[in-house]
């Protein structure tokens, strides 16, 4: 587990608080919730899980800007104020891109179900990512790509490129197909903003 669900901005946009020191036995390492990582959000007993992608990271420090009087310096708080709770947390934005139902059937795109508050967030391993992207006939599918690109998030294209790079590693047999999409995104992401004229993007 890497954290728990603490907030949502929309049906597909969730905020996860990453477990910090002391919260769990072994807090997650930074690469477990890196930009573009796949996560799983269980929906409860036999209901399957949402599959999401980490698309943003925010560092939350409630004390930032609080310049009021202190009883003791920060390193001594644990000694002199043992009831003081550190509330500095790492939050990550997660975009739900599909779900796997209780029977293991995959749906890509906007999931019909929503996650619960405080739901645990689990990093998805390579097998899970493969299972989510491989159709019963063996084809690789990224049916959520339009949902991602349609969010108008400034990093949407880069996020999809990260996903494609990982899929290329997991599905070497589909490298040619994935490269076609990768090239187009690279053009749009790097040369489009500079004024490159992509007539094919009509």
């Amino acid at each position: 587990m890497i954290g728990k669900l603490v907030k949502s901005n929309s049906h597909t946009d969730y905020i996860c608080q990453i477990y910090g020191t002391g919260e769990v036995e072994s807090p997650p390492k930074a690469d477990a919730y890196a930009f573009g990582s796949f996560v799983r959000i269980p929906l409860g007993e036999d209901a399957g899980a949402l599959i999401g992608i980490v698309y943003d990271t925010m560092l939350l420090n409630p004390e930032f800007g609080t310049l009021g009087p202190r009883l003791s310096p920060e390193p001594d708080l644990a000694v002199f104020s043992p009831d003081y709770l550190a509330e500095k947390v790492t939050l990550v934005g997660i975009k739900a891109v599909g779900m796997v139902d209780g029977a293991g059937s995959v749906t890509q795109g906007v999931p019909p179900l929503a996650a619960h508050i405080d739901a645990p967030i689990v990093a998805l391993d390579d097998a899970g990512v493969r299972a989510f992207h491989q159709m019963p006939d063996g084809r690789v599918q990224i049916g959520y790509a339009p949902v991602l690109l349609g969010q108008a998030h400034p990093l949407a294209r880069h996020l999809l490129m990260c996903v494609l790079d990982r899929l290329r590693m997991l599905f070497p047999e589909a490298a040619a197909h994935l490269d076609v999409v990768r090239h187009e995104l690279t053009w749009q992401a790097y040369l489009g903003p500079l004024g490159g004229n992509a007539r094919g993007a009509r």
Partner: peptide, 23 residues
């Protein structure tokens, strides 16, 4: 179909694909 931005062609001595690669 894909035309490089004109600005990348500014210096005739610098190949535009190298500039594109740089960014």
């Amino acid at each position: 179909v894909r035309l490089l931005p004109n600005g990348l062609l500014a210096d005739p001595g610098v190949p535009p694909d190298q500039v594109a690669s740089m960014v």
